[in-house]
Design a protein around this nucleic acid. Structure first.
Lengths: 347, 347
DNA sequence: CTGAAAGCGCTTACAG
DNA sequence: CTGAAAGCGCTTACAG
């Protein structure tokens, strides 16, 4: 009767090395490496495969990723560079990335101050980790050029930077136009636009597409250059300061570059006793989970955050594995979700 | 006149090694290592320090972290293990960690399925990275035992597990009691509690403290074992199913283990045409950014997310640097924020 | 199919 | 103060 292999045991303090496995199995460390990495076909005899597997199980051996990385020249780390993670939208992107990357790669987050991008120094530090690949969210061109990375690289939400690397983008313009059409259709003639301070390309796209469609539909847009950080409180203050002017100008709707800004507007509107949507319609972008919950619900351009991360992860994975990308440029759809903040009939 | 050292240049494809720096400076790689790591005092002559610095600047040398990690036996990676990052609360914790860790350490996120904890396999993979330290958020005892880690380890939000490792905890019980007192003081006599399915210790604490104080104040609590995942939609559905029964029982307030649950209740209450807080008071825990914005604003127990991450990072850093922890156990305050969802007078 | 050996880039006793 | 050398744990030609 065969003995069932005992479950692997942790031996705190004693790191199990390939040499120990080799000794136990009576083979060389080269053979252990081959078996541990599944590169045995035609290279290791069945007997040795079995013996090594057994020894690995008994000792609880795991390939040391530092030694392995040094020998291979790359690590199993995928670095996700992003300017802002304090956004629920981003948490979903991360979830998508994790999902598509699987357990072969480890996700390392490179985050700097809100809205700031890492520069030369940070980039060096990142590359010193010998990452298997890089995922860069909402970069500017300068950053990508600083990066001048040679390894696998995929951009997320980087409209206009398709020449630098394979990218996964969001068709925010489509949703923006839908939003303009919706407001025009609801009878608004004069609206205001509240933008994000970070001059990320996606925000330019959102604004431009909205302004263009608004103009085409005969809506006037208050040009006030009102921009704030992506923060409820900051947006509330900015709106409070701008509202008297807007009100005099006859503004009946405010469109915000993100839902977070819109929450600030909703908050301030409540404080000011403004009825939404009767006296003021409010809309945003991102369709954060709370937009369905606020009262009134927030009309918003839905962006597929998790698919964005998942697709980017898939593309990167293909790149890392040396596969040809069928479509180096992907664009995911956006669409307008109408709720009570712009429409009395909706929730 | 001295020539100003030229700014370092990226040479794509050409990795600059210590050997190259050594050759240029006319010293050994040992000396380069000493200089690059700032361990020169009393060990390297001033002249050599200057020469090496110059060569480093000219070549744009950065210590390869893989080689370095292998030689040292540890990497500069700090692993943050967490069961759920799709929570804005968690984004703040991460921000706090990043802030206190500074740029000497890289933050690697280890996330599994929502609510799930990594087990033996994942742990091995994590440890194979030779992390400088581990930060574990909201673990269960089983996980910590699986971990049986030898290196620096700090627990976050791990009440009851103080024996395993230095921890930073939140005094959620205090806020829970305040909440019970507030509701009792507002005249509620029968309330319901909606819990999270993940049996994390913090949720037990929240519930137990609330139930105890509620009992002490003469409020009856519906014992329905209503639990859902931390998801607005799931909470809405669960509430919809439970409400008829609760209503018959005379429930006038629902307390939720997280604000996210509470958003679901608010949402469903709106659909059902329930007036909040007149017919139903609602409250949660976490004080997410959107709780100040919803309409009515959500009464919530505020938990200091960013300080939680920051303190944990500080403690870990001390551990890594071999310093003695002045206070291995820290507890951060929670406090009730009363808003319109429980109080007509508030916003 | 197999193993001895070189090499990945660095750090650290050690001898001088 | 300095450098030659060993060693960290692994992978991969290479010779057999």
């Amino acid at each position: 009767m065969e003995t069932v292999p005992r479950p692997q045991q942790h031996r705190p303090g004693k790191r199990v090395t390939a040499a120990m496995v080799a000794a136990r199995a009576g083979v060389s460390t080269a053979t252990v490496s081959l078996v541990a990495n599944g590169k045995t076909s035609g290279r290791v005899s069945e007997g040795n495969v079995a013996r090594v597997r057994q020894a690995i199980a008994e000792l609880g051996y795991v390939v040391d990723s530092v030694g392995s990385s040094l020998a291979r020249g790359v690590s199993s780390i995928v670095v996700l560079v992003a300017p802002d993670i304090s956004n629920p939208f981003f948490a979903k992107v991360i979830a998508g990335v994790r999902e598509s990357l699987g357990s072969d790669f480890q996700l390392l987050l490179s985050v700097t101050e809100a809205g700031e991008f890492p520069r030369a120094d940070d980039i060096r530090r990142i590359l010193a980790l010998r990452p298997a690949g890089l995922l860069v969210d909402a970069p500017d061109a300068e950053f990508i050029e600083d990066l001048s990375s040679t390894g696998p690289l995929v951009l997320l939400d980087a409209p206009g930077l398709e020449d630098y690397a394979p990218s996964v983008n969001l068709d925010v313009a489509h949703g923006a136009r839908e939003l303009a059409a919706h407001l025009a259709g609801s009878g608004h003639r004069r609206v205001a636009y509240m933008d994000s301070v970070t001059g990320t390309a996606t925000f330019e796209l959102r604004r431009e597409a909205f302004l263009e469609e608004a103009a085409a539909r005969g809506m006037a847009v208050e040009q006030s250059d009102l921009t704030t950080t992506i923060d409820v409180g900051a947006a509330a203050e900015a709106f409070a300061a701008a509202w008297p002017r807007w009100q005099r100008a006859g503004v009946t709707a405010v469109v915000c570059a993100t839902d977070t800004h819109a929450y600030g507007v909703l908050q301030e509107a409540r404080v000011a006793g403004l009825r939404v949507p009767e006296e003021l319609a409010v809309a945003g972008f991102d369709d954060l989970p709370y937009s369905a919950t606020s009262s009134p619900g927030l009309t918003s351009v839905h962006l597929p955050a998790e698919p964005l991360g998942a697709k980017a992860g898939e593309q990167l994975r293909a790149l890392i594995e040396g596969r040809e990308l069928e479509q180096p440029q992907l664009t995911l759809e956006s669409s307008l979700i109408v709720r009570g903040s712009t429409n009395r009939a909706a929730v």
